[in-house]
């Protein structure tokens, strides 16, 4: 029951979450609590499908998803950073807006309700990695995913480099820790926060593109189904560290894939649907218990 295909499907399942979690981690580091990941991902998914459908090119679809995600995240940037609105209120409203907007648009643009799919809709092709694909087990796990899956791994590394090796990373970590101190050294808190929120929007756009053009090739109302929230939790579980967030996303992806597999042995889908959430909650218990212990011992 635990075989290469399990891990392979886990990788596909976790990619949207990973992208969104990286967005959340980036924002977190600069002191922005971003819970609008869910909605931004949903808008990205819609834009990806619409873009791919109208241009006939899946690549343009992905690009449009990224641009739309970035533009959509402007709401949070302007509302929170420029106007000083509460990030939680805005986040909840942005998520609700995404549901309303995409449901509205699926009717006005595609003239349908619920789900839009069409055999002519271009999805992302699987990439078969040369050499790697021939390695037993590893090949099955690592090869044959969409380009965005590999891009998400690169994004993890890129985030680590940005945070710890680039001046921008130092500055935004500083902003997250003490914004007044950063401002007093001439670092524009506003500009960096806009940067992380918009970059986060682009990442959520990629998350949506992978969800709607990679994992499946369709758009359905509310298809993110809580993945953006899981990303918020993954940021917390991974302490906003790039590799920590990656590990948290992998844990979640494995739990989802494993739960899916359990259906094969007769467990109802609803029981296994809950598995990832329960696993994540348990992981949080364990990690927060460990932190409490180390805090007490020092």
């Amino acid at each position: 029951m635990i075989d290469a295909a399990l891990f392979s499907s886990a990788l596909g399942a976790l990619t949207p979450i990973l992208f969104a979690a990286l967005a959340g981690a980036l924002c977190q580091r600069a002191g922005v609590f971003n819970i609008s990941l869910e909605g931004t991902m949903l808008v990205g998914a819609f834009a990806g499908v619409a873009g791919s459908w109208y241009t006939g090119s899946v690549w343009l679809g992905v690009l449009i998803a990224v641009l739309t995600g970035t533009a959509y995240s402007l709401i949070l940037a302007v509302g929170h950073v420029s106007f000083g609105g509460d990030a939680i209120v805005l986040g909840v409203a942005i998520n609700l807006l995404a549901v309303g907007l995409t449901s509205f648009l699926i009717r006005t643009v595609f003239g349908t309700r619920g789900t839009f799919s069409d055999p002519a809709l271009q999805g992302l092709d699987a990439v078969h990695l040369p050499l790697v694909r021939d390695i037993p087990f590893v090949g099955t796990v690592l090869s044959g995913h969409s380009v965005l899956v590999y891009l998400s791994w690169l994004a993890v590394v890129a985030l680590a480099v940005l945070l710890y090796r680039h001046p921008w990373g130092l500055r935004l970590r500083g902003i997250g820790e003490r914004e007044d101190a950063a401002a007093s050294l001439g670092v524009s808190v506003t500009r960096y926060r806009y940067g992380v929120i918009l970059a986060g929007g682009a990442l959520c756009g990629l998350a949506g593109a992978q969800l709607a053009l990679g994992n499946v090739t369709l758009f359905s109302e509310n298809m993110t189904a809580g993945r953006g929230w899981i990303a918020v939790v993954a940021v917390m579980l991974g302490r906003a560290l790039p590799y920590g967030v990656f590990a948290a996303a992998v844990l979640f992806g494995l739990a989802e894939a494993f739960g899916f597999r359990l259906q094969g042995v007769g467990l109802p889908q609803q029981a296994t649907d809950a598995a990832p959430y329960v696993v994540t909650l348990l992981a949080l218990f364990i990690s927060s218990a460990r932190i409490r212990r180390t805090r007490e011992s020092t």
Partner: peptide, 8 residues
């Protein structure tokens, strides 16, 4: 009251 980053 200092404007320092304690973690750095």
């Amino acid at each position: 009251g200092f404007a320092l980053f304690n973690s750095l």
